[in-house]
Nucleic acid binder design. Structure first.
Lengths: 243, 243
DNA sequence: GGAACGCTTCGGCCCCGGCCGAAGCGTCGG
DNA sequence: CCGACGCTTCGGCCGGGGCCGAAGCGTTCC
C-alpha cells in the first residue's frame, strides 16, 4: 500500500469526527444506547436533513450501525472498535484531567452514574469498584496497562465466567466518564458483565443502560470480592430527547 | 462544560488528522524520528509554505513537538499519547494489520532506533543503555530527576570529557521515542556525545542522525561502563527525504 | 562579503462540505 | 381515509481552509 493512500484513508477516518455535529452525535452514542435520528438531530441542534446527511456518512464509514423500525431509524455505535476510537480521541482532547466533562456531569447523578453498562461491560461506580477490588485482590495487574493475572484467570473459571479461549488476556482499561477512573473492559469485561446478568447479580432496567444490583448480587460481590454495595434509592432515567 | 463544547473540542482534535497532508506527516513521524520541516514537505508532496502552516497547527495543538537548530526545524510526535492517537486512528482505518505494523517494525529495527543523536546528545538504544549503565555505576542519580553524582563528575574528568565549568550539574533527562525511556541530555549529555565523536567512539552516518559505534567505541563502552555493544548488521538507512 | 539554503509570511485562488427550507415518501393512529 | 409524524431528497447559499508563488529573514558555508 502506498504511503499517500494510507494517509488519505487516515484523513478520511479522522474527518468523520472532525465536524462538531458528527462529534456530538458520536459522543451521545457513547452511552451505548440506540438513539433515533430525530433525537440525535435535536441533541446536536441541527435540522433533520442535516442530521440525515451526517448519519448516512457515519453509517457508510462503518462507525455507526442502524436498525430501521417503522418510521424510526435507530442508530448506535457499530462496535467496540468504533467506541474505542471515539473514546481515544475524546481522551486526548481534554488531556488526562478532563475527558468529557459534559457526559460526566450529565450522568454523575442518577442511577446511570452508579451502575450501568458501557457498551458491553460494567461501568459507573459499580464497574470501577469491581475493577479496583479485583486489582486489590491480585486478580488484575494495573502496573503496565491492565492485565489479567494467573490468579485472575483461576478466579474467573472458579466462578463460572467463561471467556473465549485465547482471549483470556483480552483485557482493556476503559476510562469511566462519570468516575473518571479506569474500569475493566475488553473480552474479559464483557464476559464478566454477561455472567453477572445471567447469574442474576444485576438486572437491566427498561429503556436504559442502567443496571440494578440484586440482593443476590450484593451477596456475590461481598463474598467474591469483599465489596459492600448498598442498594440505593433511584429516580427514573430521563429521556435523551431533551433539546 | 457544555456538551457542545466538548463536541467542538473533539472535532478540533480530529480535524488535525482529517487532512491528507497532515495525516501523511503524522504517519511519517510514527517512526519515532525527528524530521525536518523540509523533509516532511517533500514526503507529503506539498510546497514548503503549505507544510509550515500544517506544522504550526500541529505543534500548537500539542500533537507535535519541535526543536529549532540553526536554520532547521526538527519535528517529532509530542509524546506517547500523540503516537497512540495516530496509531489508534490508523488501526481503525485499515483493519487490524495495516501499515502501522511495518512502521513500528521500522522504528524498532532501523539503525536510527539503535544509535542516533537527538539534538546534541546520544539517543536510541545506545543513549538509553549508556544512561542506564551510568546510573547503575553510581555516576548518575535518577531518584529525583536525573543528576550527576560526585563520582560521575570525577568519571567525566578522568575520561577527558570536558563540560563547561559551572554546568556540571546541567543534566537533563530526554524521553527517547524509540525506547520510550529517558536518556542523558543537557550540557553533560552534549559533552559526552561530543567526546564520543572526537574520540572516535562513534561515527556519524552521512545524511542521517544515525551513528555507528566503532571498534574503539565498543572497547571504550566495555571498559568504562561494562557495556557490551554488538556492532549489528545494518542495511543502509533510507533517507527520509525520498519523495 | 556573498551565495546557497531552510523556513516563514503574505496575498489570492478555489473547492469542498456543512447548513437549511421546501417538498416528497412511507408509516402510524384515529 | 386522512392527518400527524419521522425521515429523506433536492437545490442553493456560504464560509472555512488547503494550496501555491513571490518575497523576506536568519543561518551556514565558502
Amino acid at each position: 500500500m502506498d504511503t499517500s493512500t494510507s494517509a488519505r484513508r487516515l484523513a478520511d477516518t479522522a474527518a468523520l469526527l472532525a465536524d462538531p455535529t458528527r462529534a456530538a452525535i458520536c459522543l451521545a452514542l457513547l452511552d451505548g444506547r440506540a438513539w433515533t435520528a430525530g433525537e440525535l438531530a435535536r441533541h446536536a441542534k441541527v435540522a433533520a436533513p442535516t442530521a440525515t446527511g451526517h448519519l448516512n456518512r457515519l453509517v457508510a464509514a462503518g462507525l455507526l450501525a442502524e436498525e430501521r423500525q417503522g418510521r424510526h431509524r435507530y442508530l448506535r455505535l457499530a462496535g467496540p472498535a468504533a467506541a474505542e476510537l471515539v473514546e481515544g480521541l475524546a481522551q486526548f482532547t481534554g488531556g488526562p484531567a478532563a475527558p468529557v466533562a459534559s457526559l460526566r456531569a450529565a450522568r454523575r447523578e442518577g442511577e446511570l452514574a452508579r451502575a450501568r453498562t458501557c457498551y458491553d461491560h460494567l461501568a459507573g461506580a459499580l464497574g470501577v469498584a469491581v475493577t479496583e477490588a479485583m486489582t486489590a485482590r491480585g486478580l488484575l495487574d494495573d502496573r503496565h496497562g491492565l492485565a489479567l493475572t494467573p490468579a485472575g484467570t483461576d478466579w474467573l473459571g472458579a466462578n463460572g465466567v467463561t471467556v473465549a479461549p485465547g482471549r483470556r488476556a483480552a483485557v482493556r482499561a476503559c476510562l469511566d466518564f462519570t468516575e473518571r477512573r479506569p474500569h475493566l473492559a475488553g473480552a474479559v469485561g464483557a464476559a464478566l458483565c454477561g455472567h453477572a446478568l445471567t447469574a442474576g447479580w444485576v438486572e437491566r432496567r427498561p429503556d436504559s443502560r442502567a443496571v440494578r444490583v440484586t440482593a443476590a448480587g450484593e451477596r456475590a460481590l461481598h463474598e467474591l470480592l469483599g465489596l459492600r454495595w448498598d442498594a440505593a434509592p433511584r429516580d427514573a432515567g430521563r429521556s435523551p430527547d431533551a433539546a
